[in-house]
Simulated scan of single mutants.
Amino acid sequence: MNKQDITILPADDHPMLLKGLSDQLKESGFPVLEGALNGAQALDSIVKDDPTIAILDIEMPLLSGFEVIKKCKEKGVSTRFIILTSHKEKAFVLKAKKLDISGYLLKDEPFSEIEACVLAVANGKSYFSSAFDDIFNKEISPQLEKIKYLSPSERTIVRLIAQEKTSKEISDLLSISHRTVQKHRANIIAKLDLPKNVDSLSVWTSENREIILSL
């Protein structure tokens, strides 16, 4: 797909950033729709104008970038989505993966990276920043692999620990004995290859809370 055939909707709640991005896209030869300053405007424009690509910030008033994407997918729009953000925390990377977003870039990257991403996404490919791939491959994927080895009961207990439930509360919620909960905890620690101390599982669940609660 050629540049002149790729219509783009940029959305960011910072007017200067939005104008700068729009101007750079236009100078590079892309047709650019009027930018949106909040998620609701972005959603309306995507549904009405059906751009090839929407470049969205995550944190915007009224609707977040992720909420816009979710609603657009529910409506069956053909627009493809690129997230342009300052966030590289595990929770955001995981959310982007679950929504099957086409591109994810960080705001401190050069415009040449944005242009490359737009061209790749417009031609049906995915394009993620190296930081995004590093976080997913080094921090998220290994933990997902470990969790695969847990039984359904053990996953339930891990989710409850991630919700900061005590062993007694878990025992009451699941109608099992405190001793059974402790046995499950010991098995989980062994399967996850964690240090054999009282706090290791709580520390691990705290560090990987977003991953656990997304399952």
Rank of each mutant, 00 (worst) to 15 (best):
V118L: 10
E27W: 04
S102M: 10
K125E: 08
S202N: 12
A96M: 06
F92M: 10
Q163A: 05
S102K: 07
S126M: 02
E109G: 05
I69L: 10
D50A: 12
D193P: 01
I83V: 05
V68R: 11
K88L: 03
K196M: 04
I82M: 11
P195H: 06
E59G: 14
S86Q: 13
E154P: 06
K48I: 15
M1R: 04
I161C: 03
A186E: 02
D172W: 07
K191I: 11
K95V: 02
A91C: 01
I55G: 02
I114F: 08
I46S: 01
E210Q: 08
D199E: 15
G29A: 10
I135K: 13
Y127Q: 03
D13N: 15
K95A: 09
C117P: 00
L213T: 12
E115M: 11
R209W: 03
T156E: 15
S200T: 00
D44Y: 09
N197H: 13
L99K: 15
P31I: 01
V198F: 03
Q182D: 15
R155Y: 10
Q182Y: 09
S200F: 03
E67P: 06
E27K: 11
S177C: 00
R179A: 06
S175V: 12
K48H: 04
K3W: 08
D199Q: 14
D108S: 11
T166F: 08
L174K: 00
T166S: 13
R155K: 15
G103W: 13
K146C: 12
I170D: 04
T7D: 02
G35F: 09
K138R: 11
L18E: 03
Y127H: 10
N2E: 05
L43S: 03
L174C: 06
K196N: 11
L192D: 01
I46D: 00
Q182M: 14
E113H: 10
Q4R: 10
I101D: 00
